[in-house]
Computed example of a mutant assay.
Amino acid sequence: MEAHNNTTIERLKNATWYFFDLDDTLHEFRKASSAAVDATLHLILEYHAHHKLSSCKPLTVAELRAEYLKILKTGTSAAFVDGKSSHEYRAERFQGVMNAFGIDCTEQQMQVLLDTYETAIMQNLQLKEGAIPLLQTLKQQGKSIAIITEGPQDSQERTVAALGLEPYFDRLVTTNKLGVAKIDGLFGKALEMIGVKSEEVVMVGDSWDRDVVPAVEAGITCVWLAEKDEGGERMVALGGEEKRVMVVDSLVRLQSIVLESSY
């Protein structure tokens, strides 16, 4: 049975700021990026088919995807803290895939790849169920709201605008802009930049390791969005102490808790 500690409920009620992760918390990022990657890899396959010799072994999208995922894992481990634009990061990944298979690509063809990816990801953006009603409820309660996210500043700004989230947010804080990853102190820097104390903030995110744990370490009350979980609470061990983390399986459920806490 789902149960929440009264102290956690009080924190939700008394918080002046709510911090939200963006990707896979407020919108279905994995689905959108997967569609964009597939569209781009099919184009790379066409480049290969156009230039390959008859003796070359046929290449598959699955092989390209496996190489892309390997490059993506390496490239995103630094959490986009080096200040490049989204197009620069993407170009590096696509070029890496093509280099692995000896595929030539002109500047013009690379631009087509980048345009294809951008168009596909924008067409496939989809808000999580309950995102807007939750944000509306928080604003009606007088809360200030910030997005605290890893990723390139430019692409996150475009995503926020395309999803219609701009009216609900007071600040957008990215690892790309501040040059520090979530696990390396982004939450502390965000608190300092905004000028708010940790005890006045609630953080909502889908990643235990990159949202919940580092936010708790910064003294912030956390709500973990775990869609396959039944809800309730989890504990984070921190410096010999255990801190409570609220668990919800949807933003719809979080909105109902926020409404209940206001009575």
Rank of each mutant, 00 (worst) to 15 (best):
M1W: 05
E2G: 00
A3F: 08
H4G: 00
K13R: 15
K13F: 14
K13I: 04
Y18Q: 01
D21Y: 07
D21M: 03
L22G: 02
S34C: 00
A36V: 08
A36Q: 07
A36L: 09
T40V: 10
L41V: 02
E46L: 09
Y47A: 08
Y47L: 15
A49H: 09
H51Y: 13
K52F: 04
L53C: 04
C56H: 14
C56G: 04
P58K: 05
P58S: 12
P58V: 11
L59Y: 06
V61R: 03
R65I: 08
A66H: 14
E67Y: 05
Y68H: 15
L69V: 07
G75C: 04
G75N: 12
T76Q: 05
A79G: 04
G83M: 10
K84N: 11
S85C: 02
S86E: 02
Y89H: 15
R93K: 09
Q95P: 03
G96M: 10
V97S: 06
N99D: 15
G102Q: 08
C105E: 04
Q111R: 14
L113M: 15
D115C: 05
D115R: 14
Y117S: 11
Y117V: 00
E118P: 00
I121Y: 09
M122V: 03
Q123Y: 08
E129I: 06
I132D: 00
L135I: 07
L135C: 07
Q136V: 10
Q136E: 13
G142Y: 03
G142C: 04
G142P: 02
I145K: 05
A146E: 13
A146P: 06
I147K: 03
P152F: 10
Q153P: 00
Q156I: 06
T159H: 09
A162W: 03
A162V: 01
P167I: 07
F169I: 04
R171I: 02
L172K: 07
T174M: 05
T175R: 13
N176E: 01
G179T: 02
V180I: 14
V180R: 03
A181V: 00
A181M: 00
K182W: 05
I183Q: 08
L186W: 08
G188R: 10
A190D: 12
A190C: 13
E192W: 08
E192K: 15
E192A: 15
I194T: 03
G195T: 05
V196N: 03
E199Y: 08
M203W: 06
G205E: 02
G205C: 01
D206K: 10
D206Q: 03
W208E: 09
D209M: 14
D209V: 13
V212K: 12
V213Q: 01
P214M: 12
A215P: 08
V216W: 02
G219S: 03
I220C: 05
V223G: 08
V223S: 08
W224Y: 07
E227K: 06
E230N: 12
E230F: 11
E230Y: 07
G231D: 07
G231A: 02
E233D: 08
M235V: 14
M235P: 01
M235A: 11
V236Y: 13
A237T: 09
L238E: 10
L238R: 15
G239E: 13
E241D: 14
M246Q: 13
M246D: 12
V248C: 12
V248S: 05
S250E: 07
S250C: 10
R253P: 00
R253T: 12
Q255I: 04
I257C: 07
I257N: 10
S262F: 06
S262Y: 11
Y263H: 10
